[in-house]
Structure formats: C-alpha cells, structure tokens
C-alpha cells in the first residue's frame, strides 16, 4: 500500500498566497489569522465526525447537536462565572473560559456516550437507518435543549481581557481569535500525538484502515469506537463553546448552521481522514474570510463552490483514507 501523499494539502498555502496580491498586506494578515482561527474551531467540531465515520462507517447527522449543547453549556457556565470573566486579570478570565470549555466537553462527552448506546449502537451497517435515526436524535436533542434553555437567543460576553485586539505589523487581530487558535492548535497537537504515538492511537488508525483485520487480531474495536465517539462529541462541544463565546449570541440553530460547514469540511478532507479534515477546515475558514472581504455578494456560495471544485478535482477528498 502506498503511503498517503500529502501534496494535495499544498492547496491551503497556495490559496493564502493567491489572495495576497488582491489586498493590502495588513488586511491579508488579519483575514488569514481570522480564517485559520475559524478553521481550527471548525476542525474541533469536525474531527470527531470524520473519525467516527472512518472507524465504524457511521455517519452521525446529529453531530451538530453536540456543538449546540457545548455552546449552551458554555454560555451557562460563563454566566455563572461572570465575576471571573469580568475581572481585569488574565488568570481569572482564562480560568472562566477554560471552565466553560471543560464543562462543555464533559457534558457533550457524557451525552455522546448515552447517544452512542441508545441511538447509534443499534443501526450499525445500514447507512439509511443511521441517517434516519441520527436525524431523529437531532430533533429530540434540539427539542430538549429548547425545553431546557428556552427559545430566546442567549447572550454571552467575551472575558474582559480577550475583548480588544492587538496590532501585528499594522494588522489588527482580535485577542480572542488568538486564544481560540491556541486552544485549537493545542488540541490538534494532542490529538495527533495520541493518534500517532500511543497504542490506542495505533489501534484507531489501524481500525480506520481495516476494521475486520484489527478485530481478527483480538482487539475490541467496539470499545475503541465508543471512546472515539465520546472524544469526538467532547471535541465538538469544545468547538461549540469557543464558537459561542466568539459569536457572543447563541440560538438553538447554531448546531444546524455548523453541521453544514462541518459536512463540507469532512467531504473536502476525505471521510475518515484527520489530516484531511484539518486541511479542509483551514481551507474553508480561509476561503470564507477572503471571499467575504473581496466579494461579499458571493460569500454565501463560497463553501459550496469550494466543495464542488474539490470534488471535481479529487472525488474522494484531499487526503482520502485508503480502505482495503
């Protein structure tokens, strides 16, 4: 089997370079940082989905519900920790944000575990039933969130110290974006470390490539899968939490909106591929920001156009997983 070629990922820096002549340097830096940050948050939301699909061939249409839940939990926690978030101290601010993200991860992980047991477990092997049942799960989850938090949009302020922006080579960069970028990159590095350096990660990667063989060697892919599902749900929760605080407003529609972007990311990257998912997320984030600046009227079709273009070029995505 040939090792996967990384060359298609070069399209990401190429896109960034192609946008450079079209705008002033400072604007380019602002937009690029914004795009990469958005991409990193998208990656958090999408990574679980792509791994779950790669490992068990399960497509979870309710993945967006974890994003929504994470967002609402984060808003509640930030509201409860308003004292820390409003204090003029980095430590207290970051602690509040960290607590919100951790609570979102914990809540989504727990709900993900229940969701896997109650909803997903019984429909392995049939894509049709998976899609139907997870859409049903999505309806239920959304309605439960509505019952719990109400239908009115909730507001949440960014922590005090993360509100302004700093200047870098004449470009204004929002502080919160840098924080989100840092969180995302740390989690991405952590994930790569687990996948590439640990025994569990080895099993996950082997399972994505050939599940039956790993099972034949005596490993319980099922148990592994539950772990990956829970971790993916928790990551989606963190992504939702970061996104909610960034947007400062949360409605129950946040999950549905992000689901579409997440699907586009996963398709562009290649279903089941973590590296491709990261590249796809950055690509979507960059394209959204560049086009939003250069031609706002075209902004709404950008993601779809990008997906169609990539699919025509590489029908299986940027870095497809070689399934045997």
């Amino acid at each position: 089997m040939k090792p996967p070629s990384w060359s298609p990922v070069l399209i990401v820096p190429l896109l960034a370079l192609a946008a450079l002549p079209a705008m002033a340097g400072a604007t380019w830096i602002t937009l690029t940082v914004a795009g990469v940050t958005m991409g990193v948050m998208l990656f958090l939301m999408a990574s679980g989905l792509t791994l779950v699909f790669g490992l068990m061939d399960v497509l979870n249409f309710a993945h967006g519900a974890f994003v929504t839940l994470g967002a609402f939990v984060a808003v509640s926690v930030m509201g409860a920790l308003a004292g820390q978030a409003e204090a003029a101290s980095w430590g207290a601010n970051l602690a509040a944000l960290g607590a919100a993200a951790a609570a979102a991860a914990a809540a989504c992980g727990a709900v993900g575990w229940v969701f896997e047991r109650v909803i997903v477990r019984r429909v392995y092997g049939s894509h049709l039933r998976q899609i139907l049942i997870t859409v049903g799960g999505l309806i239920i989850a959304q309605q439960l969130i509505l019952a719990g938090w109400g239908a009115a949009p909730l507001h949440v302020g960014k922590p005090l110290m993360l509100r302004g922006s700093i200047s870098l080579a004449g470009a204004a960069i929002e502080t919160y974006r840098l924080a989100a970028l840092a969180v995302g990159l740390v989690l991405f590095a952590l994930m790569l470390g687990v996948l590439n350096r640990t025994r569990v990660g080895l099993l996950v990667r082997a399972g994505v490539e050939n599940r039956e063989m790993v099972e034949a060697l005596g490993f319980r892919i099922r148990r592994l899968f539950v772990g990956v599902f829970v971790a993916g749900a928790a990551l989606a929760g963190v992504g939702g939490a970061m996104w909610a605080v960034y947007q400062e407003t949360v409605t129950v529609a946040i999950g549905a909106e992000m689901t579409i972007l997440v699907f586009i990311v996963v398709i562009i990257g290649g279903l089941g591929s973590v590296g491709g998912c990261f590249a796809g997320a950055i690509l979507v984030g960059l394209a959204a920001n560049y086009v939003g600046f250069l031609a706002p009227r075209l902004a709404l079709g950008t993601n779809i156009a990008l997906m169609v273009a990539i699919l025509l070029w590489r029908p299986r995505g940027l870095l497809p997983v070689s399934k045997s």
């Binding site: 579409i260 699907f263 779809i304």
Partner: peptide
C-alpha cells in the same frame, strides 16, 4: 455530481444545497 462518489455523499451535499437555496 454527488452520487458519482458515494451514495452517502448525496445526503451531505443535498443538505448543503438546501442551506444555499435558503440563503
């Protein structure tokens, strides 16, 4: 366009198309 790849892509692509149409 989408079924050329995999039947499951169809579901995701149509979801994106629906949101585009709404916009």
């Amino acid at each position: 366009l989408s079924l050329r790849v995999r039947a499951i892509f169809f579901s995701m692509v149509t979801l994106a198309a629906a949101s585009l149409a709404q916009l």
